[in-house]
Simulated scan of single mutants.
Amino acid sequence: MTLLPIVERCDNFSLDTTKEQLVPFHLSKDSTVPVGFLYPSIVQHLLDYNSAPDHWRPNAENNATADEPPFGVSSSRVYFSPSITTFQDRSALCKHLCEKWRDTGLFSDVIGGRLWRNELYPIYPLAMRDNTTEGAAFVMERVCCALFGFVTYGVHMTMYTEDGRIWVPRRAKTKQTWPGLLDNSVAGGIPYGLKPMESLIKECMEEASLPEEIAKNAKTVGCASYFYQTRTGWLQPEVEYVYDLCVPAPDVGSQYIPKPLDGEVESFELMTVEEVIQHMRSEEFKPNCAVVLLDFLIRHGHITPENEPNYIEILTRIHARFGFERYPNGVNTSSAE
């Protein structure tokens, strides 16, 4: 039986096939590649924000056009106004906008209450290039990125023993998202200011009580990428930096046994490959974690062209490009036709 449905559960959206109307979000009026895509409802809320007397303004002393609306809105794009061109100004505007939406109860099912993380994610001009701290165009509160269809980034590590078993955590039932599901050995988003390995080392200690001297032995093995649409319709294109960490079996090296620390993980269990695949088929894993495990199983020879009829499609879809550059004027809009 094919494992393709595991991929389809996560890589479940395409700009090429959607029938939904999406307006591109650009850094400027003249840019050629969008950084995100907006539903018309979000565009309307941005227009409302533009007309609000308390919308954010750049320093008027340094900018003659400080009183113009912060967002440019046309039939083919939304963009930062010509007065907002720096990392600091874009970030300050997004902070003010998102906090206003949160405080007034807009999109409470996405950004309200405990869902708000107080964690800033970097947004890059090009999703697959210059993904460094210096290359970021601005930052935005983590949970708000899905409202704009921005690409976000994370680190996912598979910790496995020398005899081929995999350490699998169960997410705490109190987690804001995907409570109680199975996860990758260690995983987390990359906040602004941290490099991927720095994020992984931080997550290893916070989630699994693994000190830096163990975590730094993880091997960088590539990336996984997919275009995910949430159950409520928001767009979450994501890129995960993928790591492997081979450790001794528990009876050989007890210091390599992961243990919950920060309350995000309920427990860890050492599973065979067969058990992992069974849990993946029964949808017990968080969808993107199942994709990272598929990548692991392919690289380690457990999934092959001989035992998986959809091997090529699985392989290509878990290393997807999002296609932003093909839709500078939007998707299913009058300007895109």
Rank of each mutant, 00 (worst) to 15 (best):
L47A: 15
K219F: 11
P82Y: 08
G154C: 07
Y241A: 01
A187R: 01
S185L: 11
R117H: 14
Y49Q: 02
L194C: 13
A249Y: 02
D251N: 12
V221S: 01
D11R: 00
C246P: 01
Y226K: 02
L97Q: 08
D183H: 11
Q88P: 00
L3T: 05
M1Q: 11
A137E: 08
Y243I: 06
R170E: 03
L270Q: 08
M157H: 04
F13R: 05
D130N: 15
T18F: 07
T17D: 10
P179S: 08
M271A: 04
I318H: 05
F322H: 08
A60S: 13
L46Y: 05
R165H: 12
G188M: 11
I277M: 09
F150M: 01
V331Q: 04
R299E: 11
S335G: 09
A208Q: 01
E238W: 12
L93D: 01
W167A: 06
P250I: 12
I201Y: 00
P69C: 01
V247D: 04
V151Y: 02
F13K: 06
I314Q: 08
Y327T: 06
P5T: 05
T161V: 09
E313I: 05
N329L: 15
A249P: 08
D54H: 03
R171W: 06
I42Y: 04
K29S: 14
R114T: 10
V7Y: 01
V168T: 07
L181K: 09
L126E: 08
L97W: 00
E308D: 07
K19E: 11
Y39H: 15
W116R: 07
Y243A: 07
F25C: 01
W56H: 01
V155E: 05
I214Y: 10
T132C: 07
V155Y: 02
E325D: 14
F13P: 05
L115V: 08
T333L: 10
V168A: 04
E275W: 00
A52T: 12
H55E: 07
F37T: 01
A92F: 00
L22R: 04
E119A: 15
T86L: 07
L261E: 11
K29Q: 14
Q255A: 12
P211T: 10
C10R: 02
L4V: 01
H55Q: 06
G253L: 09
L181Y: 02
Q176V: 14
Y49H: 02
L97F: 08
D262T: 13
G263W: 00
H319V: 05
R9H: 06
E162A: 14
E141N: 06
T232R: 15
S334A: 15
S91L: 05
Y311P: 03
R281F: 05
G105N: 13
P287F: 14
Y256P: 04
E313N: 07
T2M: 09
L194G: 11
V273I: 09
R321W: 13
P69N: 03
F227Q: 03
L293D: 09
L97P: 00
P250A: 14
W56T: 04
H45G: 07
S75V: 14
T32I: 10
P260N: 00
F227M: 03
M205C: 10
S335Q: 01
I84W: 02
D251G: 07
N329Y: 14
T17Q: 03
D295A: 06
T18E: 09
R317H: 10
C223Q: 10
T230C: 11
S334T: 15
R9A: 09
